[in-house]
């Protein structure tokens, strides 16, 4: 099978983009960082497929990670903060009563001056920073593949396999990547950037098509070309 765009894009590049969006104070800055990533993806797509007809590959593998709350293809992960905390404690061999284990388990408690109380992903980031690889090695496609197996093993009630998949993600990712992975799994990215904004930057007709179909994959595939609008594809639709 032809390698997809997602199989070429390091997950780290998506995460650094999300980090920049989140850190930006102004809307134009946030927009700029998102557009840079999206435009690179589209240009790379053009170079990879050379405008071949009938290409199903699209921005979808990234979009479903950017808007995890709209995920429909994957069933629930069955994972919340407490389970992740226990998993990290086990994996990192943290003493159960030690400072870091307690930080993870009591992530809601107000802590220091960082103002990260209540945000498990940020608490985990500071615990993980000293303890995991500087650089991750996963691509966007690999992350989606592992999340697929987390979801399907969860629905098959194979907790051992869910854990195995999560370990795979954790051992191959940097602390920054894990912070974003956690947010994707919890399905709250905290970007300060609405779903509406993401859609409108992707394509002028994206919100409309999403409202009709609630199908993120279809939105990404059919509106891949910014110059091709809903009126052009509606003949095929209806």
């Amino acid at each position: 099978p032809q390698p997809t765009v997602a199989s070429h894009v390091p997950f780290a590049d998506l995460c650094s983009t999300l980090e920049r969006i989140q850190r930006s104070k102004t809307r134009p800055e946030k927009v700029k960082h998102f557009k840079e990533f999206l435009d690179s993806w589209r240009r790379f797509h053009d170079a990879l497929y050379k405008k071949a007809a009938g290409v199903a590959d699209s921005f979808y593998p990234a979009m479903r990670l950017i808007l995890p709350q709209l995920e429909r293809e994957r069933v629930a992960y069955g994972i919340k903060e407490t389970m992740l905390a226990k998993l990290y404690i086990e994996l990192l061999h943290l003493p159960k009563d030690g400072k870091d284990a307690q930080k993870l388990l009591n992530y809601r408690a107000p802590t220091g001056p960082r103002g990260d109380a209540g945000d498990f992903a940020t608490v985990a980031y500071f615990v993980l920073k000293q303890r995991c690889p500087r650089q991750g090695c996963l691509t966007v496609q690999q992350v989606n593949d592992v999340l697929d197996s987390v979801a399907s093993n969860n629905s098959a009630k194979r907790k051992d396999l869910v854990k195995k998949s999560l370990l795979q993600l954790i051992t191959q990712s940097s602390a920054l990547e894990q912070k974003w992975l956690i947010r994707m799994i919890i399905k709250d990215l905290k970007l300060g950037f609405s779903q509406q904004t993401v859609f409108s930057l992707f394509h002028r007709d994206a919100t409309e098509l999403y409202n009709v179909t609630t199908d993120l994959e279809k939105v990404c595939r059919q509106l891949h070309e910014p110059s091709v609008g809903l009126s052009d594809i509606s003949i095929a639709l209806f």
């Binding site: 070429h8 390091p10 590049d13 650094s16 840079e36 690179s40 240009r43 790379f44």
Partner: peptide
């Protein structure tokens, strides 16, 4: 590293 396009050429990492 093959003959195909390289992602790194398309996406410039911010300094």
């Amino acid at each position: 590293v093959g003959d195909g396009p390289q992602w790194g050429v398309f996406f410039k990492k911010a300094a």
